[in-house]
Nucleic acid binder design. Sequence first.
DNA 1: TTCTTTGTTCGAATATTTCGAACTATGAGC
DNA 2: GCTCATAGTTCGAAATATTCGAACAAAGAA
Lengths: 306, 306
Amino acid sequence: MSRLQEMLVFVRVVEAGSLTAAADQLDLAKSAISRRLAELEKRLGVRLLTRTTRTMSLTDAGHNYFEQAQAVLAAADAADASVRSESAQLAGRIRLATPLSFGIAHLGPALREFALAHPAIEFDVDLNDRQVDLVAEGFDLAIRIARPSDSQLAARRLTTVRRVVAASPAWWQEHGMPTQPAELASHRHLEYTNEGQSGWDYTTADGQQGTVRLRTCLRASNGEFLRDAAIAGLGVILQPTFLIHQAVEAGDLQPVLTDCDWRDLGCWAIYPTTRFLPQRTRALVDFLAARFGAAPYWDNCLSGQA
Amino acid sequence: MSRLQEMLVFVRVVEAGSLTAAADQLDLAKSAISRRLAELEKRLGVRLLTRTTRTMSLTDAGHNYFEQAQAVLAAADAADASVRSESAQLAGRIRLATPLSFGIAHLGPALREFALAHPAIEFDVDLNDRQVDLVAEGFDLAIRIARPSDSQLAARRLTTVRRVVAASPAWWQEHGMPTQPAELASHRHLEYTNEGQSGWDYTTADGQQGTVRLRTCLRASNGEFLRDAAIAGLGVILQPTFLIHQAVEAGDLQPVLTDCDWRDLGCWAIYPTTRFLPQRTRALVDFLAARFGAAPYWDNCLSGQA
DNA sequence: TTCTTTGTTCGAATATTTCGAACTATGAGC
DNA sequence: GCTCATAGTTCGAAATATTCGAACAAAGAA
């Protein structure tokens, strides 16, 4: 008589695209998933999804049921949440995805702090720079640098991600330190793959906007890799302060033009809108937003130089 | 993890007003109800209803949860019903309440026919002339003669309940057979308790309306009792045709003024609006409406005399 | 064609749920 | 104010449901 469980299984199978994936997400054996699904179909007397070993597709009835079941699950969660006492400790699991570098350097310490305050919450963190499909892979939450474009997802801004132009002190000494953004054009830069645009947009302290284009001498898909290359004196980088602040403090990198604004990317928490947002997840997002704040600690490296 | 079951138990307890009554309705031991409720409250970390051995009242949280849980249950039922295949046989239990006389004479045969066509449906019929509280007593359906006034309930008209003035042939012979409603005023009548109004409203075949008042010589709360009194020649009755048609056909009662309309009461199926209407219940109501029809068989007794 | 991967099926192990009886307590009735 | 019927709770045992893991079958990729 566990109909809600049947609905949950069905919805997750549809979202995940396969029984195996749903089994992983729900921490169940795939045999249990298969059985549940078969039982649900038997109870309804109708086939919800036609499945072969490789492909899987919703029937009309399945499509209809999927939307309704999703709504029922969300309503049930909302009902529970609306009366759940504040004193009841937060519990359950949070599955979250985060970019690798940011995850290790900044999310990790924050998460450890949060976990200590909420011992009944279990975390499942996927550190990965690829763009995960929140719904299909069953994540509750993802951290992204730069605003996501998918309108299926809700996004909440956690903090600013300020970027700064930097190079090794030796580089500036050799190639000259720019006093205007435009002077960067004569420098070589270490480019982040998928940076998209071919130039760097900026706004100067007195409000002037412009774009400067540098020649690339190295391209990579990892910020730390580029940072280390910059420290080694290979060129100029435009990278988030969260990535390079220690190198700056240690004197290995020297930022320039710090009164310039190079388009703030922002650090975002994103989550599916189709699912109900559990209180534990909301609590984590609130915690992260408060902890990082409008002026995150990693921006302190610029305070003396702005 | 059977949250829907928890919600169901909670909702039925609130509706029934006690754990014991809810246990009866759900066919569970009251210990199971108690346990479920305790577990739900523990899971939510909040007290939903304050209960002593005698009294029971909803807390604010309980009130809130009750409404939401009710909606979730209805949504879940609706989701299932909307995809449930037509071929899937109807199953489950129907608890229904019906007035005694009508239940024995007419609902019984109809229900037996329906039950044979749907062997997986289980029936729980309460034959009782008192007005039952559908919600508190957990009925899915009630049959009522005369339109119900409770707006909390949905009502569907099953058929007409035509009433007719009748007495024994001997009575008419002795006291004269009326040719106009007004002439009834000189007769004595056998009154149905709670008939309410003190006169009989009528509309003649040519559209004239009026009210005629008779003196009462016997009052009783059961139609069959009055019918038998009329057969015995104690006076005139105004009773539904479904109650007296056999006596008319047998010649024990003789109806008069049959082209007159004495306010049609109607036979109604009523059910709670808060709950989802299961397909089996809807099927039964449809069946009854079709079987009785606009001109029910018990009105045939008048066909030769109208 | 072969091989990996996916969904299904099965009995055994596990967890959950239920029952019924004994217990406690409340408030109605005398 | 006392008694007693009745309502809710608690407990261990029994019944039920759910899960797992391994063996199996089949579809599509290489």
